[in-house]
Design a binder for these strands. Structure first.
Length: 375
RNA sequence: GGGGAGAUACCAAAGCGGCCAACUGGGGCAGACUGUAAAUCUGCUGGCUAAUGCCUUCGUAGGUUCGAAUCCUGCUCUCCCCA
């Protein structure tokens, strides 16, 4: 399922390919987040052509509540429902266990949720989240976990980890007992937790490695901890996770975060940052970040990024984009989102190239400084 | 020509003797955003100051008062109704 094509000579970065039921994914890869069956504001057509996305995310919790699995099944799965022919990965709802904490209660059985839409009660279990993800038809499904907040008491993190591991065993059992709905292969990725505690992370990584699934994920990071803490944990965990399986760092991150994590051996990323921050006027470029709302761009008629990663980056001027964003026009959010996603995809594609050339580490160090600049 | 209403900061609009450098919107300026309850949220928006604070503001010129954006008088301008 995962084939390593090349390794960097000065870091643990590697380039590879993941084969799914909807084609190959070149790694390292960034996966745009499409929570509700849409990457907010962007047509699937642009996602595929201008942005060159190879795989997108969906969310179990949101899609289960609306439109519901019945309709998705009727449509023949999420791919057909949304007209997206490439791979889809679905998060299990583990992040909602964290982000909707006031609306849920955890039990051994699972997570009892109050819908944020109408207040109705639902339970997510390791088993039914596998079932829902089977209905959705995700190429890569995630095991239900608890994404712990940060900071987090050691005792809580330890207890939470035990629960996540218990849930994982049940998810895998159920996964093995069930079949894909739509004929294409589906994978289930387990998730390493353990907050920022080294020993818990080691225990968790060993547990996850022993499950011998097709790929592995690291969760519970980029929830407020300093970046150095995150890198430290990734390093610890990646020493234990099998080299020959893809590693997915959930919810990360900034462009600099991506490059650092790739150097530590991460292959897959997802993050709302390029889309959400784009909608809010922040642009990522190879020279640094831009707040397009800032007055200094008001008369800048040069393209957003002349050597830009997407058609829109090369076509529209900063002054025009600023005008759109300041006016609250939808097109502004759309252009910014497309540009940012294309930038992220270009960045990981460049990273792959550098890895194959064995020059990644040096390139990464020269890039990260620039990426963190404020223009 | 007669009668009535009103003039408040970039705009709109509250305030109608002290708690007013002045509510609230908008606009503007800046910040935040990391497995999306976010096209959202936060701060600032008279001048000087790091801050306490000080100074100049509510059409304009005077007046009353310990104290006025708020009360009185003149002037200027705007809007509405009647002729």
């Amino acid at each position: 399922m995962f084939r390593i094509e090349g390794k960097d000579k000065d870091s643990n970065a590697r380039a590879g390919r993941i084969l799914t039921g909807h084609g190959e994914i070149a790694t390292p890869i960034f996966m745009p987040v499409g929570t509700q069956g849409t990457v907010k504001g962007i047509l699937q057509h642009d996602l595929e052509n201008d942005i060159k996305a190879q795989i997108i995310l969906g969310n179990t919790y949101h899609l289960y509540l609306r439109p519901g699995t019945k309709l998705i099944e009727k449509a023949g799965g999420l791919h057909k429902f949304i007209s997206w022919r490439k791979p889809i990965l679905t998060d299990s709802g583990g992040f909602q266990v964290f982000s909707l904490a006031e609306n849920r209660k955890l039990t051994d059985e699972g997570a009892v949720f109050k819908s944020h839409i109408d207040g109705s009660r639902h339970i997510f279990t390791p088993e039914n989240t596998v079932d829902i993800q089977r209905s959705i038809g995700a190429d890569i499904m995630m095991a239900l976990d608890e994404c712990t907040p940060w900071p987090c008491e050691y005792d809580y993190a330890k207890k939470s980890l035990a629960l996540t591991h218990q849930w994982l065993d049940r998810a895998i059992t159920h996964f093995n007992e069930t079949e894909p709905f739509y004929g294409h292969n589906q994978f289930l990725f387990p998730i390493v937790q353990g907050s920022t505690f080294d020993d818990l992370r080691k225990i968790s990584a060993e547990k996850i490695a022993s499950c011998n699934m097709e790929g592995n994920a690291i969760g519970g990071l980029s929830v407020g901890e300093p970046a150095e803490e995150m890198y430290r944990i990734i390093e610890i965990v990646n020493k234990i996770l099998p080299v020959e399986k893809p590693r997915y760092l959930m919810g990360v991150g900034t462009p600099a975060n991506l490059l650092e994590a790739i150097a530590l051996g991460i292959d897959m990323f997802d993050c709302v940052m390029p889309t959400r921050n784009g909608r809010n006027g922040m642009l990522f470029t190879s020279q640094g970040t831009i707040n397009i709302r800032n007055n200094k761009w008001s008369e800048d008629l040069d393209p957003i990024d002349p050597a830009g990663p997407s058609e829109v980056s090369r076509t529209y001027s900063k002054a025009y984009l600023r005008h759109l964003v300041m006016s609250g026009e939808h097109l502004g959010a759309q252009i910014a989102s497309i540009h940012n996603l294309a930038f992220y995809l270009q960045l990981v594609s460049d990273a792959k190239q550098k890895i194959l050339e064995g020059e990644f580490y040096k390139w990464k160090n020269s890039m990260t400084k620039k990426l963190s600049e404020r223009l």
